[in-house]
Design a protein around this nucleic acid. Structure first.
Lengths: 224, 224
DNA sequence: AGCAGAAATCATGAGTTTTTCAAAGAGTAA
DNA sequence: TTACTCTTTGAAAAACTCATGATTTCTGCT
């Protein structure tokens, strides 16, 4: 059982780390949002403890991006009450939260509860759709058993599409999801990646998998 | 039965050495961390008695590095209580500890107990992945039955990759695991070893076994 | 059916980042 | 010494991202 602990305060990090390790969990730590995202994908943790008040990329944004790729349980650490409101208000996919200051003992108990709950409903991490399968964490994509090497952007697009194959997504939506809100990349750029992605799928035998719905967006073609 | 004794105090070293030799064990001594690591690999001891308060490389670090390569039982010598906390709190893979001052007689008894226990459960674990096999303890690597001579670093990389073949490991992660956290070696250094390792594997018929995932890391190529 | 404008696709290339490569110095063991 | 390993360094090569503008396709309208 591996836990990713994200907090910018080294003292708190050490304190919590020891508590978690006492509970017989393997701990990976990150001090900021970027590092957190990195470890979230590299280490494939089974649980994430995430502070909200991070420098640069804040906890909310980190959570949002992780949720794009994974359903790993996330517990927030918050310092202020208004942050709690945000957690509850936004649909972030948080599993629980703990307000600072807190006792490490309590934190461990909370994590145990959530893990127990989530292990029952455990979902395999790989996404599938017909002959296509994609495991974003392992960074591995196959079609008809044949491996395809995707770049980060291509995988991002395909991951989003696979999360709800029937749904049509507009370019604007894809851009927001992949590059984050307020990004400046143009529609044409997305199209370029889309083109490359399609070419790779095509080459691997997946004919016309990504369908264009004119003036609306794109989606995966229904499995026949 | 060979025992490696690591302590920076010459008096204590002699004292313990005599006790151990009375018990009919062969004794190798080291006065600091570097020397300890050296002997640990050269002499292939069956047991290690390791003082924590060593100059430069402390006992924890020495233990960590030895554990990368071997499951040899380790018993810690500690002078202070807070060090005990560390041993217990951190998952270092220590088998036991003795606080100074201690009686040599007691130490011998403890070692006997551990040896008895470990000899029963000791399983030399060779790692395999397709045609590739690696036994880190024996420092032996084969591919298609053909023996390959690996340097320490090369084996370190390959061992990590083999521990979970599907997983992609970033360069940073590999460096942390192999050289320890806070090490100063550059990514290029790792690349150099990687290059050498790949060349050796290639030469022995293992084509393109280590796969690069651009901007993410490296992993073993999936066995088809 | 044919047209105009919008939307999507395509081809290309500059700019970055990441990876690989090669050469050489320092340290260590035989 | 000689051979080998480890490490550093700098630069070449490769991969990737993104932007741009030309071209093609689509759709509603006359």
């Amino acid at each position: 059982m591996k836990i990713l602990l994200v907090d910018d305060d080294p003292r708190l990090r050490d304190l919590v780390r020891i508590a978690l390790e006492r509970a017989d969990w393997q701990v990976v730590t990150a001090a900021d949002g970027q590092e957190a995202l990195l470890h979230a994908s590299r280490e494939a943790p089974d649980f994430i403890v995430l502070d909200i008040g991070l420098p640069e990329l804040d906890g909310f944004e980190v959570c949002r991006r992780i949720r794009q790729r994974s359903e790993v349980p996330i517990l927030f650490l918050t310092a202020r009450d208004d942050e709690v409101d945000c957690i509850l208000g936004l649909e972030l996919g948080a599993d629980d939260y703990v307000t600072k200051p807190f006792s490490p003992r309590e934190l461990v108990a909370r994590i145990r509860t959530i893990l127990k709950r989530s292990q029952k409903t455990h979902v395999p991490s790989a996404l599938r759709h017909g002959a296509l399968s994609l495991d974003p964490l392992a960074h591995r994509c196959q079609i008809n058993g044949q491996e395809i090497a995707l770049t980060a952007r291509e995988q991002g697009i395909l991951t989003l599409l696979l999360q709800d194959p029937a749904r049509i997504r507009s370019r604007a939506e894809l851009i927001t999801q992949i590059w984050g809100a307020g990004s400046q990349v143009s529609d044409r750029t997305l199209d370029s990646h889309l083109r490359n992605l399609r070419a790779k799928l095509e080459r691997a035998g997946g004919h016309d998998l990504i369908e264009t719905v004119h003036a609306v967006g794109i989606r995966l073609r229904a499995v026949t």
